[in-house]
Amino acid sequence: MYEKLETRTFLALLVGVSLAFVLLMKPFFGPIFWAVAIALIFHPVQQWLLRRIGDRPNTVALLTLTLCMVIVVIPVIVLITSLVAEGVSLYQQIQDGELRPGEYIDKVTQSFPAIQSLLDQFDIDLSGLRERAVNAFVGGSQFLAKQALGVGQNTFQFFLSLALMVYLAFFLLRDGHKLVELLIKALPLGDARERLLFAKFAEVTRATVKGNLLIAIIQGALGGFIFWVLGIKGALLWGVVMAIVSLLPAVGAAIVWVPAAVYLFAVGDWVQATVLTAFGVVVIGLADNILRPIFVGRDTKLPDYIVLLSTLGGIVMFGINGFVMGPLVAALFMAFWGIFIREFGEHDTTLGLGPRDLPDDDSSAT
């Protein structure tokens, strides 16, 4: 009896201390998460260097991290800095009256009276819609301006988070496999289940980060390129905005280039509008429709509609990190239920589920 009380007391304290540790780490969730993502994504590079250099873990981890900084971290910082600078310039032009978003909307409605008729059928107030669109445009540029001020005021915090991410990534690259084995020993789920879940975590994180970021870069570059070719102001800014919104499946860069094409049609620039529309539908649109299922859906082994819903839900719940966290939660949800059905459920039921329909447990986490 006394031994059971000791065990229960110890487990209660273990849970309490673990929760306290999680709360202690909560302010550093972002750097920790992206350090884990870097370690998972660059794990194949680390293994390749190990085969070439030999068993020198510190050197290999340092070289891998340096490569990550050159390929990913530094370009992203430069791109964000350019985006903020463009946003500040755009906001200043609006404040000085050089840009009047309301006039653009008025030109579109004047050129296409059918829009007014269509809105009237649904009892939609065009003036209210115009005001909300203008406020959204001004608010977006104002947000970027505030971010620029915030970055300037919180430079120390930004570089502290960056340094913490890089520092953690080094140790995760060097000792990540040891930490995984330690967690497998500590968690009371069964080694086979734990290896399956860790493998799924690594697989989905790699797929969503690499796939979504690659698609975002491609769509943003294509969108910025066509805006630059057509002489549309702020091509860099709109290219980066298209890259960001392309993280949203089924919406993507169209939320930027479609209004631009409509405006060009409204002001009579038919050639530019036609070129932008054709390029957006054929090139930018197909880049999303073809590449996303290949890079994200195939590697995560999730249906396209689950990828869409989990990405949107993840962004709502976790912010920008949600484009990874959402599909990750969905994949782990399906993995857990797959294990449950295989081990505790009945096979060949009315749903037609059998062992071959469920996740394999012979994967190993990296």
Rank of each mutant, 00 (worst) to 15 (best):
D175A: 11
A207S: 14
L230Y: 05
L248R: 05
S161V: 04
R206D: 04
D175M: 06
F225Q: 02
V245N: 06
E203M: 10
W238S: 08
F170N: 11
A186V: 13
A207R: 07
K200V: 14
A221W: 02
A235F: 09
T205W: 00
L160F: 12
F227G: 00
L160I: 11
A192E: 15
L247V: 13
A235V: 06
L230T: 10
G220M: 06
Y167F: 15
L213V: 12
L160T: 14
E181N: 10
H177C: 01
Y167W: 13
Q219N: 14
L189Y: 10
W228V: 05
F170G: 03
F171I: 09
L230M: 07
K210E: 12
K200N: 10
I244G: 05
Q157L: 13
G220R: 03
H177D: 15
P188H: 04
V166G: 02
F156C: 02
L214V: 12
M242Q: 12
M165F: 00
L248D: 06
K185A: 13
T208N: 10
E194V: 15
L187I: 15
L160A: 11
G176F: 01
A243V: 07
V166L: 15
G211L: 01
L164H: 00
A192P: 00
V166S: 00
M165P: 04
G190W: 09
F225C: 13
V229T: 12
F156I: 15
I184C: 05
L189A: 13
L189K: 09
G239H: 09
L197E: 00
A207H: 07
T155C: 10
A235D: 12
I244R: 00
P188Y: 06
F201T: 15
F198I: 05
L214D: 08
A207K: 04
G224P: 10
V166C: 09
I244D: 02
V241E: 03
I232L: 14
G223K: 07
K185F: 02
Q219R: 03
R174M: 12
A250R: 11
F198E: 07
V241K: 03
E203G: 08
V180D: 08
L189I: 15
F227R: 03
G224F: 06
T208P: 01
A199M: 03
L214Y: 06
F170T: 01
G223N: 02
V241T: 08
M165A: 11
L183W: 09
L214K: 07
L236K: 14
A250Q: 12
G252W: 00
G176Y: 04
L247G: 09
I244N: 02
G224T: 04
V240C: 14
A199E: 05
Q157T: 14
A216F: 01
I215E: 05
K200D: 10
I232R: 05
K200Y: 01
W228D: 11
L160H: 08
I184T: 13
F198A: 09
I226Y: 04
S161M: 12
V240S: 08
L222Y: 02
G223Q: 04
A235E: 06
I226L: 08
